[in-house]
Design a protein around this nucleic acid. Structure first.
Lengths: 223, 223
DNA sequence: CCACGAAGGTTGCAGCAGCATTACGGAAAC
DNA sequence: GTTTCCGTAATGCTGCTGCAACCTTCGTGG
């Protein structure tokens, strides 16, 4: 596990690094925002600890910058200012948590763990395909982290395909995924759903395509 | 928020359920350990309140059973025996807290909150959505830092949606968040709540909107 | 290499499932 | 006693969905 610590008080930073090391966490440290961004490009951090008051500006400005660059690394904001309104400010802008100084290292650790647990757990249930993130458990689909709505039947088809991404899914498997045994299906309804789903995926620039394997079934692939 | 109460004294159980309901907590109740385990399989509880002395055995035996099944739902043990030694017994075995009868409901609530705060998400204590700040633990909602009061059921719906802000929440999930299994729901009560909640959110200029995902559920988004 | 049949693709349409809204009355809270 | 909450049911509406008709692509055998 590797954290980036952006903090200009060197004593605090050093103490934190030691404390985190005891929890088996590797910490990179910088005092300036400019360097911080560089570092995020070169390394893949599990989380970022961010001070607000920094020599080269307000720490919060870093959050949208990182987000715009396409990364969703969890960010925990550290600060002396702990007013409710400022909390909101931080969270609103896309930070994941907020911790007012002074704090106990144990409390920080708890928050780091909490913030890390989130994506890991999600990773177990979420499928990435093209620019899409598909969550079969919650039945939702996002493209570039904005919600992508689909009609229920098309959604079920997509999920069934995504679960076996890059592998052929038999036609009969799809039918079972979309219809229960009570609902008999007398026409090419499934084909129609595939067709409509393809159109929507293309229009939305999803980055995936549904291929047909003649006589067998379908297959979802990155474009 | 949803609790499982395992307690054989029915009057106490009923009184507790009412008291917890006032705090916006949905309570499922059972008197036997055997049923309790079943219920934990079928539902996802935020915490479990467990009596020690039960008709079909020592309540504590339930703790390792649940843990072995892979769940870490917080358990608070309730009991008349409040000897320090017995506390240790309970905690040792994997319970999270211990409360000797008689107790004040307020004390119980404080412990429930504490136990919920611990495991996962400190970050979840406050959710920002539009101009609202929602605190699921304390069940309050503020718009521009002034208190925004909602009827209980609507509040529960809002919180369930807010916890998964920008993501679809299944209709069934919402129903579970608002009703316990005894309260059967024979009509479109949930729809009615959604409708009324929408109106209130709009009138108050909350800055959020509830969208419907046909066939799946609902979704809370910034406007 | 062409023709032909089968599998798959596309699209308009009608019916209906699912949702939104609102009024009403009983119940609970104040 | 008044007000608010809540479940129910009636009403209206939207757009999903199954169907069918028609078109395109694929693969095989002559």
């Amino acid at each position: 596990m590797r954290l980036l610590l952006i903090e200009d008080e060197k004593e605090l930073a050093a103490a934190l690094a030691v404390a985190l090391a005891k929890h088996g966490i590797v910490t990179d440290h910088t005092t300036h925002l400019a360097d911080a961004f560089e570092l995020t490009l070169q390394n893949d951090y599990d989380a970022i600890l961010l001070d607000r008051r920094l020599p080269d500006g307000e720490g919060l400005t870093f959050v949208p910058k990182l987000r715009r660059s396409g990364r969703d690394t969890p960010i925990i904001v550290l600060t002396a200012r702990n007013e409710p309104l400022e909390r909101v400010e931080g969270l609103d802008i896309g930070a994941d948590d907020y911790l007012g100084k002074p704090f106990l290292v144990e409390e920080l650790m708890a928050r780091v763990r909490a913030v890390l647990r989130r994506p890991t757990n999600l990773a177990e249930t979420e499928i990435v395909a093209g620019r899409m993130v598909i969550n079969p458990l919650h039945l939702n689909v996002a493209i570039d982290s904005t919600q992508f709505d689909l009609p229920r039947r098309e959604l079920l088809v997509l999920i069934a395909l995504a679960k076996r991404k890059n592998k052929t899914v038999r036609r009969s498997t799809l039918e079972e995924a979309v219809y229960n045994y009570e609902e008999e299906i007398q026409s090419n309804a499934l084909d129609a759903h595939i067709s409509r789903l393809r159109k929507r995926l293309a229009d939305a620039g999803s980055g995936v395509a549904i291929h047909n394997i003649r006589g067998v079934g379908y297959l979802l692939k990155d474009e």
